[in-house]
Nucleic acid binder design. Structure first.
Lengths: 233, 233
DNA sequence: AATATTGAAATTGGATCCAATTGATCAAAA
DNA sequence: TTTTGATCAATTGGATCCAATTTCAATATT
């Protein structure tokens, strides 16, 4: 089994994002290398990259540490995602390239519609939703033809809780959760409609609002019920 | 002379941004290491980081290459900077923390005013202006108390021509250049005024416009006169 | 008992070594 | 002459080694 060049980086990032490595945990080169069955070199490179991504901080001579991410930081991160994805939506319209992406976006919409056709909502459906959601945002960002947006988002997407690929779901309130995701999906509809109609500014502000919605949800949560985080990729 | 841990990274980045390494130039570990008088290890780490920053691309088994940055990419990057700095301006107002940063911003304003007190404009003054400008944007971003903005901008700031710390100046048209920078400085005044007045949305759009102004300039340019790029830090 | 000192352990950073892969070159065969 | 095959050089990725620095603890000294 030939490991990919970035395997160590991915594995470590995953462990952090999934919570296997908790905030505040210390991470040292040699033990980490042994744990993963590789040498120190790839671990070192990965640590540096994760530091750059803001997931680790270096304690001088005491290894690295999984950074504490405050709620404020998550909120800030969501704002950033909002303006960047908003820009993407606007630029799709402004560049007049909407036609080429609309089809893909509409595919996402109908995939979503299918999910909401009956009110039942289990974990599997949520997983599908998360993937569709991710696809939607992906198409939008790529469709903007502005690579700087993707680059700027990249770091953001590695922020726990703030990325499009992770979503908090509380199975005990599946009814309310249904409502919430349904609402988010309606926003997708509105956004596509705005893009199609050439309403760049409207698409932009809808998109910002859409990012914000996830945040409201998160704030309302935070008092640790039995919710689960579901991620894609 | 003890080299900093990130010395190699900084040196290479600088060579790229300053044009000492041109777009399309190939970069290989061993010769680069020899050139800098270090071993391959720090060079490898630097290459990875520069790849992540979008300044290098890896050609499989053929080393790395300084990426070609198209005008479109620069334009996109400027747009991104606009929305992010716009967000920063708005959040300063929204968070009600304006008081603490206003003083610093005003310092920048009066430093700038001094520069424009007579119409003479030499290269030294431009250098001072670039530093003041950088400070202004820095204060604004830090003042927003939203670290995600700084993180997202970070990559952007390593993009040649698109960052706040680099500015193109044509000494042959120092009169027109004076006008341009004076106008940009007036925009700074307006932005501070908006922040002070608690006009978040206005501050945001002024800031976006301000980023855009630099771009207009760049497009108008591009037909290679004898202009110089002046950078800070 | 408190403090200074010394030395070992931990830890990182850089250098060098080795292996694997692939592109290039050159020669041989069709 | 063109194509194919084989060998070699280039290049990266990972492993290990060595040096420098800092913390920590234990011991000696006052």
């Amino acid at each position: 089994m030939k490991k990919d060049k970035h395997a160590v980086l991915s594995i470590l990032r995953d462990k952090i994002l999934s919570g296997a490595l908790k905030q505040g945990d210390r991470l040292v080169e040699i033990p980490t290398a042994e744990m993963l069955g590789v040498s120190r070199t790839p671990v070192r490179i990965a640590f540096r990259a994760l530091e750059q991504e803001g997931l680790l901080t270096q304690l001088p001579r005491r290894g690295y540490q999984v950074r504490e991410i405050t709620n404020d930081e998550i909120a800030g991160s969501v704002e950033v995602r909002g303006v960047l994805e908003g820009l993407a939506a606007r630029q799709i319209v402004e560049k007049g390239l909407a036609g080429e992406v609309i089809a893909e976006l509409k595919q996402c919409l109908s995939d979503g519609d299918a999910l909401f056709s009956d009110r039942s909502f289990n974990e599997e459906k949520v997983q599908t939703y998360v993937e569709m959601n991710r696809k939607f945002h992906d198409v939008l960002v790529k469709g903007s033809q502005n690579n700087a947006i993707a680059m700027a988002l990249q770091i953001n997407e590695h922020m726990p809780m703030a990325s499009v690929s992770s979503l908090v779901f509380n199975p005990d309130e599946s009814d309310r959760e249904y409502e919430r995701l349904y609402y988010a999906h309606q926003q997708h509809h509105d956004i596509v409609q705005a893009i199609e109609a050439g309403q760049g500014a409207r698409a932009e502000s809808l998109m910002k609002e859409h990012a914000q919605a996830a945040m409201n949800r998160y704030e309302q949560l935070s008092k640790g019920t039995t919710s689960r985080t579901i991620r894609s990729e």
